[in-house]
């Protein structure tokens, strides 16, 4: 067993610097690496480029990094629900690249899987395709999109073992698995870290080979963005 366990979030994010590009898992506030984000806020590193489907809300998730003006550029598919984000975007303090959600996922997966670029139909004929190579296959048009390059991927999983094998829960999976191994260093935080051999190999979602560092998060708030319920009749 190759041990990927690190003792703390401090050790987990060791090596992060100003100007780096990070991938961060999560969809809305679901499945975000809460502990890593808090540590990045504490370290106060600046000029970051963040690849993340969303940008959090004002006082949680990536919104915490935005509040302290640590992010220079966001690469996302949807950035609503965040007033500070809107203010920084309109005042041009923040650079924003909006890309289709499936393209975002596939650009991560391509980086993980060693594929430099791929063709997708998403965005053909729209401003997303401006300046990009397009090609026709079987009578349909496609846009060439490139794999991301990133320094760190910050991933949140449900359970993991010391070998870096991880399992996700529900829709907190989202972009997390495709970011594993898509950056130079992949840091995974889990709700429960167990010794190697405790997880059933058939149930592993991402094998530890894609993970460099794993730790158990000290605390999870797991905030719900839209609490929708029905009454018991």
């Amino acid at each position: 067993m190759i041990n990927k366990k690190v003792k703390s979030v401090t050790e987990a994010v060791n090596g992060v610097k100003d100007g780096m590009t990070f991938m961060l898992g999560g969809f809305g506030l679901c499945g975000i690496p809460e502990n890593c984000i808090q540590q990045l806020v504490k370290l106060n590193i600046k000029d970051l480029t963040c690849i993340s489907n969303n940008a959090g809300v004002d006082d949680f998730g990536l919104g915490l990094l935005l509040q302290k003006h640590q992010i220079r550029k966001m690469i996302s598919s949807y950035v609503g629900e965040n007033d500070e984000f809107e203010r920084q975007m309109l005042s041009r303090e923040l650079d924003v690249e909006l890309i289709p959600q499936g393209t975002l996922a596939e650009r991560c997966r391509a980086a993980q899987a060693g594929i430099p670029a791929f063709y997708t139909p998403a965005g053909y004929g729209t401003e997303v395709a401006d300046g990009k190579e397009t090609r026709e296959f079987n009578g349909k048009h496609y846009v060439l999109e490139h794999a991301f390059k990133a320094d760190f991927a910050f991933v949140k999983a449900w359970k993991g073992d010391e070998a870096g094998n991880i399992i996700f829960k529900g829709t907190a999976r989202n972009f997390n698995p495709v970011m594993c191994g898509a950056a130079k260093t992949t840091v995974v935080e889990v709700e429960e870290l167990v010794p190697a051999g405790s997880l059933e190999p058939n149930q592993i979602h991402v094998p530890g080979i894609f993970v460099q560092r794993i730790f158990e998060g000290a605390k999870y708030e797991k905030r719900i963005e839209q609490r929708t319920v029905r009454k018991k009749s």
Binding site: C30, E81, G170, Q226, R227, V229, R230, K232
Partner: peptide, 17 residues
């Protein structure tokens, strides 16, 4: 979900439980 049975890890694309 019924009130009290919401799970932060189970949402739709509208971010609703």
């Amino acid at each position: 979900p019924f009130e009290g049975e919401e799970d932060a890890d189970i949402i739709n694309a509208g971010k609703q439980t």
